[in-house]
Design a protein around this nucleic acid. Structure first.
Lengths: 125, 125
DNA sequence: ATTTGACTTAGAGTAAACTCTAACGAATAT
DNA sequence: ATATTCGTTAGAGTTTACTCTAAGTCAAAT
């Protein structure tokens, strides 16, 4: 079991953020006799998954919705599947946008480099 | 030349957002005799570039910085190059994150599909 | 015994990026 | 002539996701 500051360090988030996620019903850790939060390996695994969703632009509200469906039990598997399928589509769109912007930027960067090199050689003249 | 609502439609943003970008010094269109905004093809091209940067998570502040460097003239090419190079790195990081999350989601989705199919066949029994 | 450090809570504050409102002006449609 | 449409401005309001503050509890270290 991990304390809130251990989890914060492990996942590179602030303790504030972890408490905020709890308030938003995204992760509800256990408590010790002293009411302090204790996170298990399962909690950690779920949080890592949440971070992946966050890093790929899933809003907190959608993550909360997925968490809620999970809590509701097996009859929500179809809904969870659909939510994940939608997010997969969003990821694929983002991949396309990023790839095309990457290409565009590489071209622009090359033009800048050419321009800068040309300016330098003219300066030497 | 395009009016603000034409540009809004063409680029799928609101007129509010276009005025906001102007306030943020990201795009300054011309004006007609009636003080109404008029965007040229050059403005449109720049706006499309801005949208690409936005879609790949460049903050407005950085976009404004790039615009400002551009206004300042040729002696800022090195700074502009560096800004674009940094954003290219950010895009490459995002691509990695998205690719690995895509893989993870595909696996999870497959497990959900298996589970749902299995449940169905058991229901038939 | 007291200080230090890590934790607790409720709730306030912040930053980014819009998004909307109100009050007005000009041009076109009926 | 008046109503509608499209534009203008300054500035207020909203949403998202934190981020911080204040006041307190508790256990270990000096």
């Amino acid at each position: 079991m991990y304390t809130i500051s251990e989890v914060a360090k492990l996942l590179d988030v602030s303790t504030h953020t972890l408490r905020y996620y709890e308030k938003e019903n995204i992760i509800i850790p256990d408590r010790n006799e002293n009411k302090e939060r204790l996170y298990s390996d399962m909690h950690l695994k779920w949080l890592k998954f949440v971070m992946k969703l966050k890093q790929t632009q899933m809003p907190i509200a959608k993550i909360r919705e997925y968490a809620r469906l999970f809590e509701e039990g097996e009859h929500t598997t179809q809904a969870r599947l659909e939510l994940l399928e939608n997010h997969l589509l969003s990821i694929q769109n983002q991949l396309e946008t990023l790839a095309s912007t990457e290409k565009m930027l590489e071209e622009k960067i090359n033009k800048y480099r050419e321009f800068i090199n040309q300016s330098k050689s003219e300066t030497v003249k």
